[in-house]
Amino acid sequence: MTATTLPARRFGVPRKYVPVAVTGCLFVAMFVIGGFRYESFATGQVVLNVFIDNAFLLVVAVGMTFVILSGGIDLSVGSVVALTTMVSATLMTGHGWPAWPVILLVLVMGSVLGFAMGAIIHYFEIQPFIVTLAGMFLARGLCYTIGTESISITDPVFTAFAQTRINLGPDLGISPSVLIAAVVVLVAGYVLHYTRLGRSVYAVGGNENSALLMGLPVARTKIAVYTISGFCSALGGILLSFYMLSGYGLHAVGMELDAIAAVVIGGALLTGGSGYLLGTVLGVLVLGLTQTILSFEGTLSSWWTRIFIGLLLLAFILLQRLIGVRRSLRPSGS
């Protein structure tokens, strides 16, 4: 093919940023519409509350972003979150462990789980879907071997984290969890865009075979993304424990799907290699704001959140397909 100059459709933004920009616009539009419809909606605290209520989801979705960018999927995150809450609650409430060693332990546990799944996926060449599905059942099952009842957490460190509010100004405040989530996002963004590991994640997601032939450490990269996802799930589990102050085997059921939805709505391609962390943040915000709007509406059942998210997902996948079609029209061969 010769380099035929197609009339390049010019958006204001480069094409690769279009999905993120769309999600950003959607968030702003939802906020503006909510502001017009409901009194006392258009305040900064509403946005901050979205962060407060979804800090754990944000952290989990960050880990999921790494996995999806590398072309994989991690279905185990919700169960690992639940397992984290359960292990923390039992150790502290049942066995009287202090908070900090427990936090350290569960973070290591989540990372090891992720590392093991990554190693199996890479060295046995098994579909990530299957391996993490097994991990999902394993972690959820472990919760019930610990206990079937909800265990409440009374540890002073955890209650302090739950109740502290950091004031950002008059009538504006966030929880420490939001701060932790923000740090996670910043670190992850730096890793993805300014380190070799991050670029390897994109390369592996783009074309694993090429990445191997280009001399990139594919094995290390793939195992690293699942380890990161495991770590983020465990950290998300700790944040959920702060939020719920309990450990329960039925916590975070289906959270893996929320996380995947957030990443996809944020514009990442499920086939890997394309997407931005900022998109994931916006994706979580859109999901959270949807819930907020429905609670302001008051009369609608919370299941409408699901319906709305379902429609959003469909719309975004179609949008990506449209962008993809246009991309393949360009002179890239094959």
Binding site: G206, M214, S274
Partner: peptide, 28 residues
């Protein structure tokens, strides 16, 4: 090789340098 073994999703520059980017304190 005959088939181009590069990553189409990365930029041209990155395809030349990925894995051996010039860095300063680990930052690309």
């Amino acid at each position: 090789y005959q088939e181009v073994n590069l990553c189409g999703n990365l930029s041209v520059a990155e395809n030349i340098f990925v894995g051996r980017e010039p860095r300063k304190f680990g930052r690309i």
